[in-house]
Design a protein around this nucleic acid. Structure first.
Lengths: 156, 156
DNA sequence: ATTCTTATTGCAAGTGAGTTGCAACATGGA
DNA sequence: TCCATGTTGCAACTCACTTGCAATAAGAAT
Protein backbone atom coordinates (compact mmCIF):
# COMPACT_ATOMS: atom_id res chain seq x y z
CA UNK A 1 0.00 0.00 0.00
CA UNK A 2 1.38 3.39 -1.07
CA UNK A 3 1.61 6.55 0.94
CA UNK A 4 -1.46 8.05 -0.69
CA UNK A 5 -4.73 6.16 -1.10
CA UNK A 6 -5.81 5.32 -4.61
CA UNK A 7 -9.13 6.84 -5.53
CA UNK A 8 -11.56 5.96 -8.27
CA UNK A 9 -13.59 8.67 -10.01
CA UNK A 10 -15.46 10.74 -7.49
CA UNK A 11 -19.21 10.96 -7.17
CA UNK A 12 -18.66 14.72 -7.18
CA UNK A 13 -17.51 14.43 -10.78
CA UNK A 14 -20.41 12.22 -11.87
CA UNK A 15 -23.05 14.31 -10.09
CA UNK A 16 -21.73 17.84 -10.30
CA UNK A 17 -23.34 20.38 -8.01
CA UNK A 18 -23.67 24.08 -8.59
CA UNK A 19 -20.68 26.30 -8.16
CA UNK A 20 -19.38 26.31 -4.59
CA UNK A 21 -18.24 29.93 -4.86
CA UNK A 22 -21.70 31.06 -6.01
CA UNK A 23 -23.23 28.98 -3.24
CA UNK A 24 -21.14 30.82 -0.65
CA UNK A 25 -21.81 34.26 -2.15
CA UNK A 26 -25.56 33.60 -2.17
CA UNK A 27 -25.27 32.88 1.55
CA UNK A 28 -23.66 36.28 2.14
CA UNK A 29 -20.14 34.94 2.66
CA UNK A 30 -17.29 37.26 1.69
CA UNK A 31 -15.51 35.79 -1.33
CA UNK A 32 -11.81 36.32 -0.85
CA UNK A 33 -8.95 35.55 -3.23
CA UNK A 34 -7.92 32.60 -1.00
CA UNK A 35 -11.41 31.14 -0.73
CA UNK A 36 -11.86 31.33 -4.49
CA UNK A 37 -8.71 29.26 -5.00
CA UNK A 38 -9.57 26.67 -2.35
CA UNK A 39 -13.19 26.27 -3.34
CA UNK A 40 -12.21 25.89 -6.98
CA UNK A 41 -9.66 23.20 -6.11
CA UNK A 42 -12.16 21.28 -3.99
CA UNK A 43 -14.76 21.47 -6.72
CA UNK A 44 -12.45 20.22 -9.48
CA UNK A 45 -10.68 17.63 -7.28
CA UNK A 46 -9.91 14.32 -8.94
CA UNK A 47 -9.85 12.55 -5.58
CA UNK A 48 -10.53 13.06 -1.87
CA UNK A 49 -8.20 15.74 -0.60
CA UNK A 50 -6.49 16.01 2.74
CA UNK A 51 -5.47 19.38 4.17
CA UNK A 52 -1.82 19.10 3.19
CA UNK A 53 -2.57 18.17 -0.42
CA UNK A 54 -5.13 20.93 -0.72
CA UNK A 55 -2.65 23.39 0.75
CA UNK A 56 0.13 22.35 -1.64
CA UNK A 57 -2.18 22.76 -4.63
CA UNK A 58 -3.40 26.12 -3.36
CA UNK A 59 0.14 27.40 -2.84
CA UNK A 60 0.96 26.76 -6.47
CA UNK A 61 -1.60 29.47 -7.26
CA UNK A 62 -0.77 31.76 -4.33
CA UNK A 63 2.45 30.97 -2.53
CA UNK A 64 1.50 33.09 0.50
CA UNK A 65 -1.72 31.20 1.21
CA UNK A 66 -1.44 29.86 4.77
CA UNK A 67 -2.39 26.41 5.99
CA UNK A 68 -4.56 27.99 8.69
CA UNK A 69 -6.68 29.48 5.93
CA UNK A 70 -7.18 26.01 4.50
CA UNK A 71 -8.46 24.81 7.88
CA UNK A 72 -10.69 27.85 8.28
CA UNK A 73 -12.15 27.55 4.80
CA UNK A 74 -12.88 23.85 5.28
CA UNK A 75 -14.63 24.67 8.58
CA UNK A 76 -16.70 27.26 6.79
CA UNK A 77 -17.70 24.84 4.04
CA UNK A 78 -18.51 22.16 6.62
CA UNK A 79 -20.64 24.60 8.60
CA UNK A 80 -22.62 25.38 5.45
CA UNK A 81 -22.98 21.70 4.63
CA UNK A 82 -21.11 22.09 1.35
CA UNK A 83 -18.37 19.56 2.00
CA UNK A 84 -18.28 16.21 3.77
CA UNK A 85 -15.44 15.21 6.03
CA UNK A 86 -14.14 11.64 5.72
CA UNK A 87 -11.82 9.46 7.76
CA UNK A 88 -11.34 6.78 5.12
CA UNK A 89 -10.90 4.29 7.94
CA UNK A 90 -7.77 6.08 9.23
CA UNK A 91 -5.73 4.30 6.57
CA UNK A 92 -3.16 7.08 6.89
CA UNK A 93 -3.36 8.19 10.49
CA UNK A 94 -5.85 10.58 11.98
CA UNK A 95 -6.08 13.14 9.22
CA UNK A 96 -9.32 13.93 7.41
CA UNK A 97 -10.29 14.00 3.77
CA UNK A 98 -12.80 16.31 2.13
CA UNK A 99 -15.15 16.19 -0.82
CA UNK A 100 -17.79 18.51 -2.21
CA UNK A 101 -21.19 17.27 -1.12
CA UNK A 102 -23.26 15.80 -3.93
CA UNK A 103 -27.01 15.64 -4.44
CA UNK A 104 -27.05 11.96 -3.53
CA UNK A 105 -25.22 10.50 -0.53
CA UNK A 106 -22.72 7.73 -1.06
CA UNK A 107 -20.56 5.63 1.19
CA UNK A 108 -16.84 4.83 1.07
CA UNK A 109 -15.11 1.50 0.88
CA UNK A 110 -11.48 1.43 1.95
CA UNK A 111 -9.32 -1.58 1.10
CA UNK A 112 -7.19 -2.34 4.13
CA UNK A 113 -4.68 -4.17 1.95
CA UNK A 114 -3.99 -1.91 -1.05
CA UNK A 115 -5.45 1.35 0.22
CA UNK A 116 -7.92 1.78 -2.64
CA UNK A 117 -10.91 4.00 -1.91
CA UNK A 118 -14.19 3.28 -3.68
CA UNK A 119 -17.52 5.03 -3.57
CA UNK A 120 -20.85 3.25 -3.47
CA UNK A 121 -24.35 4.59 -4.06
CA UNK A 122 -27.42 2.52 -3.32
CA UNK A 123 -31.14 2.93 -2.95
CA UNK A 124 -30.83 0.71 0.14
CA UNK A 125 -28.70 3.45 1.67
CA UNK A 126 -31.48 5.96 0.95
CA UNK A 127 -34.11 3.57 2.36
CA UNK A 128 -32.05 3.08 5.52
CA UNK A 129 -31.85 6.83 6.03
CA UNK A 130 -35.60 7.06 5.49
CA UNK A 131 -36.20 4.34 8.06
CA UNK A 132 -34.12 6.23 10.64
CA UNK A 133 -35.96 9.47 9.97
CA UNK A 134 -39.36 7.76 10.31
CA UNK A 135 -38.84 5.28 13.12
CA UNK A 136 -36.75 7.55 15.32
CA UNK A 137 -38.14 10.90 14.19
CA UNK A 138 -34.47 11.83 13.73
CA UNK A 139 -33.83 14.57 11.20
CA UNK A 140 -30.58 13.63 9.45
CA UNK A 141 -28.27 16.50 8.52
CA UNK A 142 -25.11 14.58 7.70
CA UNK A 143 -24.33 10.89 7.27
CA UNK A 144 -21.02 9.15 7.17
CA UNK A 145 -20.69 5.49 6.31
CA UNK A 146 -17.36 3.82 5.70
CA UNK A 147 -16.44 0.17 5.37
CA UNK A 148 -12.97 -1.30 5.71
CA UNK A 149 -12.16 -4.64 4.14
CA UNK A 150 -10.54 -6.34 1.18
CA UNK A 151 -11.33 -5.18 -2.35
CA UNK A 152 -12.04 -7.41 -5.36
CA UNK A 153 -8.58 -6.84 -6.85
CA UNK A 154 -6.83 -7.90 -3.64
CA UNK A 155 -9.07 -10.96 -3.25
CA UNK A 156 -8.01 -11.98 -6.75
CA UNK B 1 -25.53 20.34 25.47
CA UNK B 2 -23.41 18.98 28.32
CA UNK B 3 -19.73 18.16 28.29
CA UNK B 4 -20.36 14.44 28.02
CA UNK B 5 -22.73 12.96 25.44
CA UNK B 6 -25.83 11.25 26.75
CA UNK B 7 -26.00 7.60 25.81
CA UNK B 8 -28.94 5.26 25.74
CA UNK B 9 -28.50 1.60 26.62
CA UNK B 10 -25.78 0.03 24.54
CA UNK B 11 -26.24 -2.74 22.02
CA UNK B 12 -23.34 -4.42 23.82
CA UNK B 13 -25.59 -4.82 26.85
CA UNK B 14 -28.55 -6.17 24.89
CA UNK B 15 -26.42 -8.55 22.80
CA UNK B 16 -23.65 -9.63 25.12
CA UNK B 17 -20.64 -11.32 23.54
CA UNK B 18 -18.35 -13.84 25.14
CA UNK B 19 -15.76 -12.72 27.63
CA UNK B 20 -13.21 -10.37 26.08
CA UNK B 21 -10.44 -11.62 28.37
CA UNK B 22 -11.08 -15.24 27.35
CA UNK B 23 -11.19 -14.16 23.74
CA UNK B 24 -7.72 -12.62 24.07
CA UNK B 25 -6.27 -15.59 25.95
CA UNK B 26 -7.58 -17.99 23.32
CA UNK B 27 -5.66 -15.93 20.77
CA UNK B 28 -2.46 -16.39 22.72
CA UNK B 29 -2.34 -12.84 24.09
CA UNK B 30 -0.61 -12.39 27.45
CA UNK B 31 -3.24 -11.45 30.02
CA UNK B 32 -1.75 -8.83 32.28
CA UNK B 33 -3.24 -7.23 35.39
CA UNK B 34 -3.77 -3.98 33.43
CA UNK B 35 -5.43 -5.66 30.47
CA UNK B 36 -7.77 -7.56 32.74
CA UNK B 37 -8.96 -4.30 34.31
CA UNK B 38 -9.37 -2.47 31.01
CA UNK B 39 -11.07 -5.30 29.19
CA UNK B 40 -13.48 -5.79 32.08
CA UNK B 41 -14.36 -2.09 32.12
CA UNK B 42 -14.97 -2.05 28.38
CA UNK B 43 -17.13 -5.14 28.60
CA UNK B 44 -19.32 -3.81 31.41
CA UNK B 45 -19.43 -0.23 30.12
CA UNK B 46 -22.77 1.51 30.43
CA UNK B 47 -21.94 3.85 27.58
CA UNK B 48 -19.39 4.54 24.87
CA UNK B 49 -16.08 5.26 26.55
CA UNK B 50 -13.39 7.67 25.52
CA UNK B 51 -9.75 7.11 26.52
CA UNK B 52 -9.79 9.58 29.40
CA UNK B 53 -12.95 8.13 30.97
CA UNK B 54 -11.64 4.61 30.59
CA UNK B 55 -8.33 5.67 32.13
CA UNK B 56 -10.04 7.35 35.10
CA UNK B 57 -12.13 4.26 35.78
CA UNK B 58 -9.11 1.98 35.45
CA UNK B 59 -7.06 4.10 37.86
CA UNK B 60 -9.68 3.62 40.55
CA UNK B 61 -8.71 -0.07 40.45
CA UNK B 62 -4.98 0.43 39.93
CA UNK B 63 -3.73 3.94 40.49
CA UNK B 64 -0.44 3.28 38.68
CA UNK B 65 -2.07 2.22 35.40
CA UNK B 66 -0.73 4.54 32.72
CA UNK B 67 -2.72 6.23 29.98
CA UNK B 68 -0.31 4.82 27.40
CA UNK B 69 -1.40 1.35 28.45
CA UNK B 70 -5.00 2.33 27.74
CA UNK B 71 -4.01 3.39 24.21
CA UNK B 72 -1.98 0.22 23.68
CA UNK B 73 -4.74 -2.05 24.94
CA UNK B 74 -7.33 -0.37 22.73
CA UNK B 75 -5.00 -0.82 19.73
CA UNK B 76 -4.68 -4.47 20.58
CA UNK B 77 -8.44 -4.95 20.84
CA UNK B 78 -8.96 -3.05 17.61
CA UNK B 79 -6.36 -5.19 15.85
CA UNK B 80 -8.20 -8.31 16.98
CA UNK B 81 -11.53 -6.88 15.88
CA UNK B 82 -12.93 -6.99 19.41
CA UNK B 83 -13.80 -3.31 19.76
CA UNK B 84 -15.15 -0.71 17.35
CA UNK B 85 -13.83 2.82 17.27
CA UNK B 86 -16.38 5.62 16.95
CA UNK B 87 -16.18 9.33 16.22
CA UNK B 88 -19.75 10.14 17.29
CA UNK B 89 -19.68 12.95 14.74
CA UNK B 90 -16.86 14.75 16.57
CA UNK B 91 -19.43 16.23 18.94
CA UNK B 92 -16.62 16.67 21.49
CA UNK B 93 -13.53 17.32 19.42
CA UNK B 94 -11.38 14.76 17.70
CA UNK B 95 -11.29 12.08 20.36
CA UNK B 96 -12.57 8.56 19.78
CA UNK B 97 -15.06 6.39 21.62
CA UNK B 98 -14.91 2.63 21.99
CA UNK B 99 -17.40 -0.19 22.41
CA UNK B 100 -17.14 -3.96 22.53
CA UNK B 101 -18.11 -5.35 19.14
CA UNK B 102 -21.44 -7.14 19.14
CA UNK B 103 -22.74 -9.98 17.03
CA UNK B 104 -24.90 -7.62 14.99
CA UNK B 105 -23.65 -4.31 13.60
CA UNK B 106 -25.48 -1.14 14.48
CA UNK B 107 -25.11 2.50 13.55
CA UNK B 108 -24.96 5.61 15.70
CA UNK B 109 -27.18 8.68 15.66
CA UNK B 110 -25.74 11.80 17.24
CA UNK B 111 -28.02 14.74 18.03
CA UNK B 112 -26.17 17.90 17.09
CA UNK B 113 -28.38 19.93 19.45
CA UNK B 114 -28.46 18.01 22.76
CA UNK B 115 -25.56 15.61 22.24
CA UNK B 116 -27.62 12.45 22.71
CA UNK B 117 -26.18 9.31 21.17
CA UNK B 118 -28.56 6.59 19.98
CA UNK B 119 -27.92 3.20 18.44
CA UNK B 120 -29.91 1.77 15.56
CA UNK B 121 -30.07 -1.76 14.23
CA UNK B 122 -31.82 -2.56 10.98
CA UNK B 123 -32.12 -5.39 8.50
CA UNK B 124 -31.73 -2.73 5.81
CA UNK B 125 -28.25 -2.10 7.18
CA UNK B 126 -27.47 -5.82 6.88
CA UNK B 127 -28.91 -5.88 3.33
CA UNK B 128 -26.81 -2.88 2.36
CA UNK B 129 -23.66 -4.63 3.57
CA UNK B 130 -24.67 -7.72 1.63
CA UNK B 131 -25.17 -5.66 -1.51
CA UNK B 132 -21.68 -4.18 -1.18
CA UNK B 133 -20.11 -7.61 -0.65
CA UNK B 134 -21.90 -9.02 -3.69
CA UNK B 135 -21.83 -6.18 -6.20
CA UNK B 136 -18.30 -5.06 -5.46
CA UNK B 137 -16.85 -8.37 -4.32
CA UNK B 138 -15.65 -6.39 -1.30
CA UNK B 139 -15.10 -8.40 1.87
CA UNK B 140 -16.18 -6.14 4.74
CA UNK B 141 -14.16 -6.41 7.94
CA UNK B 142 -15.39 -3.32 9.77
CA UNK B 143 -18.22 -0.86 9.13
CA UNK B 144 -18.82 2.51 10.65
CA UNK B 145 -22.01 4.46 10.03
CA UNK B 146 -22.88 7.60 11.91
CA UNK B 147 -25.58 10.18 11.31
CA UNK B 148 -25.67 13.69 12.73
CA UNK B 149 -28.95 15.55 13.01
CA UNK B 150 -31.75 16.53 15.37
CA UNK B 151 -33.32 13.94 17.64
CA UNK B 152 -37.04 13.48 18.34
CA UNK B 153 -36.81 15.14 21.76
CA UNK B 154 -35.15 18.27 20.33
CA UNK B 155 -37.63 18.51 17.45
CA UNK B 156 -40.43 18.47 20.03
C1' DA C 1 8.29 -23.77 43.21
C1' DT C 2 12.13 -21.53 40.49
C1' DT C 3 14.20 -19.99 36.49
C1' DC C 4 14.26 -17.72 32.20
C1' DT C 5 12.68 -15.75 27.88
C1' DT C 6 10.16 -12.36 26.00
C1' DA C 7 6.13 -9.45 25.88
C1' DT C 8 4.39 -5.56 28.41
C1' DT C 9 4.49 -1.55 31.28
C1' DG C 10 5.52 3.30 32.95
C1' DC C 11 7.85 7.24 32.07
C1' DA C 12 9.27 11.13 29.49
C1' DA C 13 9.75 13.11 25.36
C1' DG C 14 8.01 13.54 20.77
C1' DT C 15 4.71 13.94 16.70
C1' DG C 16 1.27 15.91 14.01
C1' DA C 17 -3.41 17.54 13.15
C1' DG C 18 -5.91 21.18 14.20
C1' DT C 19 -6.90 25.82 16.97
C1' DT C 20 -6.39 30.56 18.75
C1' DG C 21 -5.00 35.58 19.71
C1' DC C 22 -3.86 39.36 17.39
C1' DA C 23 -2.19 43.00 14.29
C1' DA C 24 -2.28 43.92 9.38
C1' DC C 25 -5.11 43.63 5.45
C1' DA C 26 -8.86 43.17 1.91
C1' DT C 27 -13.81 42.91 0.73
C1' DG C 28 -17.82 44.93 -0.76
C1' DG C 29 -21.53 48.13 0.69
C1' DA C 30 -22.32 53.13 1.45
C1' DT D 1 -13.23 56.50 -2.54
C1' DC D 2 -14.06 55.60 2.13
C1' DC D 3 -15.02 52.75 5.86
C1' DA D 4 -16.77 49.08 8.89
C1' DT D 5 -16.07 44.61 9.51
C1' DG D 6 -14.79 40.06 8.18
C1' DT D 7 -10.54 37.61 6.84
C1' DT D 8 -5.68 36.51 6.63
C1' DG D 9 -0.89 35.22 8.10
C1' DC D 10 1.96 34.41 11.74
C1' DA D 11 3.48 32.33 15.89
C1' DA D 12 2.39 30.03 19.70
C1' DC D 13 -0.49 26.78 21.51
C1' DT D 14 -3.59 22.57 22.54
C1' DC D 15 -4.71 17.99 22.52
C1' DA D 16 -4.97 13.17 21.03
C1' DC D 17 -1.99 9.92 20.26
C1' DT D 18 2.86 7.57 19.57
C1' DT D 19 7.58 6.07 20.53
C1' DG D 20 12.23 4.73 22.73
C1' DC D 21 13.84 2.57 26.44
C1' DA D 22 14.93 0.58 30.91
C1' DA D 23 12.46 -1.90 34.46
C1' DT D 24 9.02 -5.37 35.24
C1' DA D 25 5.95 -9.31 35.07
C1' DA D 26 3.58 -13.35 32.42
C1' DG D 27 3.65 -17.86 31.80
C1' DA D 28 6.24 -21.78 29.58
C1' DA D 29 9.93 -24.77 30.62
C1' DT D 30 12.35 -27.11 34.06
Amino acid sequence: MGTQPKHTMLAAQRNPRRNLAEELISRGVRMTHQRRILVDLIQRADRHLDVLTLWRRARSRDSTLNKVTVYRTLSLLKKHGLVDELDLMHLEGEKHFYEARTTRDHLHLACLKCGAIMEFESSLFEKLKGQIERERRFSIQVVRMEAGGICAACRG
